[in-house]
């Protein structure tokens, strides 16, 4: 009964939404502010990838928020799943799990540097090609994930993760504040912008994307390590 009501409700909502969606013409130029971006990104900022210049510069504040969201997610997962530091280290992830096949392990060994290199390429070239700090960070974290799932004794040093995370985060926010100190706006570019389509172009955008890359990589690695090191069955007795 409940399902029928929900289906009817959704049908009505779907009808209205469809009515509205199909009223918006598909594939037609309706840009207003974006025209400015498409004009300013190559001409003022000398950044080839307009999406990057929007993400890091024009709407850089959003990205600061986005990085914070990931930071919060890692903090939240730590706080939800683990109570004490001791418990955390004691519960070694895959103690009872069988090893991956030898071949998979070797291939992980070989692939890991390549994946990290790919991630580094993606976030260093964020302003020239698709991708950027976030994607590169995810790729690097995936490289660590590969090691985490294939080697059951592999574990990431949380202390160094904390350091990388903190330094990268401070670089991002600090560059913003540095702009304030230099008498410009928060996150405003204060470096020479270079020539378009060169690696060293776009001023602070490259630096910020590298920082975002490191931060995302360390945060996601932390999250994955935390989630993979949960003790499988029953839990320690907990009260308020």
């Amino acid at each position: 009964m409940k399902k029928i009501i929900i289906i009817l409700l959704l049908a009505v909502i779907g009808y209205f939404l469809a009515d509205i969606f199909f009223e918006i013409p598909f594939g037609e130029d309706s840009m207003v502010v974006s025209k400015e971006y498409l004009d300013k990104s190559p001409n003022d900022l000398h950044v080839a990838n307009t999406v990057t210049s929007i993400v890091v510069n024009f709407r850089g504040f959003d990205t600061l928020g986005e990085v914070t969201v990931l930071f919060l997610a890692s903090t939240a997962i730590g706080s939800i799943l683990f109570r004490r530091r001791k418990v955390h280290t004691k519960l070694n992830p895959q103690r009872n799990a069988p090893h991956a096949s030898r071949i998979v392990q070797i291939s992980a060994k070989i692939l890991f540097p390549l994946i990290v290199l790919l991630g580094a390429y993606v976030f260093i070239h964020g302003h020239l090609t698709p991708g950027g700090g976030f994607q590169g960070g995810v790729i690097i974290a995936t490289g660590y994930l590969l090691l985490l799932v294939t080697y059951r004794k592999f574990s990431v040093s949380h202390s160094s993760l904390t350091w990388i995370e903190a330094i990268a985060g401070v670089t991002f926010a600090g560059i913003g504040v540095l702009g304030l100190i230099l008498g410009k706006d928060f996150l405003e570019n204060f470096l020479p912008v270079g020539t378009i389509n060169n690696l060293f172009s776009g001023g602070i955008i490259g630096i910020i994307y590298v920082a975002v890359g490191f931060k995302v990589a360390s945060e996601l690695t932390g999250i994955l390590d935390t989630m993979l090191s949960i003790k499988v069955d029953s839990e320690e007795n907990e009260q308020n």
């Binding site: 060994k109 070989i110 890991f112 540097p113 990290v116 290199l117 580094a120």
Partner: peptide
């Protein structure tokens, strides 16, 4: 930088 950390396994 990447080689420093991985040469032993690579």
């Amino acid at each position: 930088i990447i080689a420093i950390y991985n040469f032993n396994n690579f």
